[in-house]
Design a protein around this nucleic acid. Sequence first.
DNA 1: GCTACTATGTATAAGTT
DNA 2: TAACTTATACATAGTAG
Lengths: 171, 171
Amino acid sequence: MGRGKIEIKRIENANNRVVTFSKRRNGLVKKAKEITVLCDAKVALIVFASNGKMTDYCCPSMDLGAMLDQYQKLSGKKLWDAKHENLSNEIDRIKKENDNLQLELRHLKGEDIQSPNLKNLMAVEHAIEHGLDKVRDHQMEYLMTKRRNENVGGGESATQFPAATTGDGYS
Amino acid sequence: MGRGKIEIKRIENANNRVVTFSKRRNGLVKKAKEITVLCDAKVALIVFASNGKMTDYCCPSMDLGAMLDQYQKLSGKKLWDAKHENLSNEIDRIKKENDNLQLELRHLKGEDIQSPNLKNLMAVEHAIEHGLDKVRDHQMEYLMTKRRNENVGGGESATQFPAATTGDGYS
DNA sequence: GCTACTATGTATAAGTT
DNA sequence: TAACTTATACATAGTAG
């Protein structure tokens, strides 16, 4: 255009290339603004010069993030959704696990037993009893260790806790 | 331009606006392609018509995702990073909650009792006993309901379960 | 929506300062 | 280097199909 027709291929002269870039980039932004105003259009434009410098334009009525959300919806192409999908999936997975844990916990506490039948209730009961046994084992171990240590340290009197074999004396 | 100069303001005639949009959008994309080729530039362009239809162009040498990464770096503006951060935070939060639930559950099962002292052990024991009581209450209720229903339906014989007031007969 | 026409306004390539 | 000039090519408004 201008003083001579040019082919649309890379401008070899570096100086001309830079000058032309500058002019055309300004022209492009101007046109983008014009179509925005004239036609109620939404436009986003990002231009990188070969030296890395960036110019951008985004219509005032929608921010770039919203434009790109829309772009993803309409084009079906993923920009950040791919990354987000992974994270979202993990959230769902963990939440589900969380729910299951909550439910199990509530059952062990005797709460929220929605569909009681004898088999389930007895299974829960056995689970709880098993836990109770184990906790009492821990108590035993603790007490015996404590008494042993006291006997080593002083030995003058028995503790107030009776000697007991693991698993009885509490139920 | 063309048959008359126009002001850069919204074209009120809807038909003209649509026609002009179409022409200018094509012109914009053409210019974007030209500057890409002529000047080694990287260009991304997204245009939404007022009817929601989208047109986009991205230079062949860099995909839109890469352009936007670069945009975020150079502009300092967040596009998806913000969302990303939110999701990551939520994952952390849920995982923590999850860990707490797991621990509580293991304690109720008598497992993973790391720092046993009598006070903690007895607290756990009481929690478990409380749960056990409640489960046994459920069992009672179930059995009594069942027997009541059987008596209404036939009434010829007692069930094999003894009548019991809530809270005894099991421990 | 799109193509075609065409008069006219703009953008811009190359030259100049 | 960039700003200015200007001839020319291009884009496009209005219109019709």
